[in-house]
Each structure stands twice: as structure tokens, then as C-alpha cells.
């Protein structure tokens, strides 16, 4: 019989000055299956942190725990200065999230989606209006303001979903395979938005399947079978594994996987 550790508040200085996320021994267990197996990592303020791994390696599960929509089985996590075990709601105010399903309301119009999430995050009426105008211009969606999100092309939906996810100027935004299913040009456009956000000081935590995107990240972690097998800058990882590109690095590591997808 296993007892859950007595929950203690995080020690003073658990999260150092320049960091926004620190996870120690983060674990998720579904019965006998350990989806995420005691992973530890730190994410620096303002960086683009690539969170890679094959399907089933546990990336999405780990990300959901960090976002507070899945409970962790074990571990200590501090996000934006708050303990994940105790202050989920406060953390939620400081983070944005966009999943591979880019969950905007398809039966709401473009401006209505912006308004809804603006309102939920506590923006004031005039702030919402200002933000809506700004986004419509920036995303070049002015003509589509009154279109249902359902009718937008996939690439535009992704851009809109990303903009909505950072509408409240969060400290961190979590992106779960944000660019699935679109052409390279559209993906490039999306990454420009990511860079813009990072420049504004928003930390980006992103999972992806595209290894060219991994090259865009400041640092990259690679998960294999629920564990982090490597974590460093793309350049150092390539050096370490004697590879020309991240694709080779990824395959070298992913080959070690024993788990089925």
C-alpha cells in the first residue's frame, strides 16, 4: 500500500529568480501505467521551451498537469511563483493554453470568441473592445469579424486560437502541437507570432512533431517513455549526439523507446 506524501508547501527559493517553471519528480500514474515518470526540469523566463517526444511519450499528459487540468500523482511543481498543488486558480490566471484541438467555439463568430475569453479572464469591456480591434488588424481578420469560426481555414483558426490564449498577457503559454495539419508557409507564419509573443516577455512552452520547429526553440527536452532523456539547446544536443539536425537527434533517442504508441 502506497501512501501519498504529506503535502508540504514548497521551500523558499524553490523557484529561482530567472525561472518561471520548476518541476521536480513530476509523475502521472494511470493504474499500473506510468505515463509521466518523475520528470524534472526548469523553464527560464522568456524562453521558447520545446517539449518533444514521440506519440505516447507523455508530453500531453505532462502539459495537462502543468496547466492544472489533470492532477499529478507525485512531484513538486512551481509555476509563475505559485505551488501547483495549492494555487491552481492563481496559476490559471498567469497561463494561457492552446491544444491541438484549438478549442475555440466553432459556432461563435470570430469577435465573439475573443470577447468570451477576454471576459472570462476578467478584461474590462473597453479593454476587450480594444483588444478585439487590435487582433482583427494583426491577424488580418477584419473581413471575417462576423464569420463563424467554423468557416475559417485551419491556419487562421490556429492563429486566432493562439491570440485568444494570450489575450490576458499571461506569463507562460502552453502550446500542444499548435501547428498540426497545415502547410510549411502557414507554420512559419505561426512561429512568427510565437516569436512576437516571446519578445513581449511571454514564456513559450511548446510541444511539436516537426523537428524543423524544434530548431526554433531556445532549449529542447526530449521525452522517451515518460522520462526526459535529453534537455539542452538544439546546438548542444546536435553536438552531443553527433547529428546534423534535430531530426537525427530525435530518432537516436526515440529508438530507445520500448513503449508502444
Amino acid at each position: 500500500m502506497k501512501f501519498r506524501k504529506f503535502i508540504q508547501p514548497l521551500e523558499e527559493g524553490f523557484l529561482s529568480e530567472g525561472d518561471v517553471i520548476r518541476a521536480e519528480g513530476l509523475t502521472k500514474q494511470f493504474g499500473n501505467f506510468t505515463a509521466v515518470d518523475h520528470i524534472s526540469f526548469t523553464v527560464h523566463k522568456g524562453e521558447i521551451f520545446g517539449f518533444l517526444g514521440a506519440n505516447g511519450a507523455g508530453k500531453t499528459t505532462a502539459m495537462k498537469m502543468l496547466c492544472g487540468i489533470s492532477t499529478m500523482t507525485d512531484g513538486q511543481v512551481c509555476i509563475a511563483g505559485y505551488d501547483l498543488k495549492w494555487h491552481v486558480r492563481r496559476i490559471k490566471r498567469e497561463i494561457g493554453y492552446m491544444s491541438q484541438k484549438f478549442s475555440l467555439y466553432e459556432d461563435l463568430k470570430v469577435w465573439e470568441n475573443i470577447r468570451l475569453f477576454g471576459g472570462i479572464y476578467g478584461l474590462k469591456e473597453d479593454e476587450i473592445e480594444r483588444k478585439t480591434e487590435l487582433l482583427l488588424d494583426r491577424l488580418d481578420l477584419r473581413k471575417q469579424k462576423n464569420s463563424l469560426v467554423r468557416s475559417l481555414p485551419l491556419g487562421w483558426k490556429q492563429k486566432l486560437a493562439f491570440s485568444v490564449a494570450i489575450i490576458h498577457n499571461p506569463k507562460i503559454v502552453f502550446l500542444d502541437e499548435p501547428t498540426g495539419g497545415v502547410d510549411p508557409a502557414t507554420r512559419r507564419g505561426f512561429w512568427e507570432m510565437i516569436y512576437d509573443a516571446a519578445e513581449q516577455g511571454i514564456t513559450i512552452f511548446v510541444t511539436t512533431h516537426y523537428m524543423d520547429e524544434a530548431e526554433y526553440c531556445d532549449r529542447v527536452s526530449i521525452m522517451v517513455d515518460g522520462r526526459i532523456e535529453a534537455l539542452d539547446t538544439p546546438a548542444r544536443l546536435k553536438e552531443m549526439y553527433n547529428s546534423d539536425n534535430m531530426d537525427q537527434v530525435f530518432h537516436t533517442l526515440a529508438r530507445r523507446a520500448k513503449r508502444d504508441e
Binding site: 496547466c67 487540468i69 497561463i95 484541438k101 478549442s103 475555440l104 472570462i120
Partner: peptide, 14 residues
């Protein structure tokens, strides 16, 4: 079913 609930769940909505 549509997945929108997940987006609501990451917000601080009580």
C-alpha cells in the same frame, strides 16, 4: 465532445 471544455478548464472560471 467538441473539446471546448478543456479550454474553459484552463481558465480561472470558478
Amino acid at each position: 465532445e467538441s473539446g471546448t471544455i478543456e479550454q474553459i478548464n484552463v481558465t480561472p472560471v470558478s
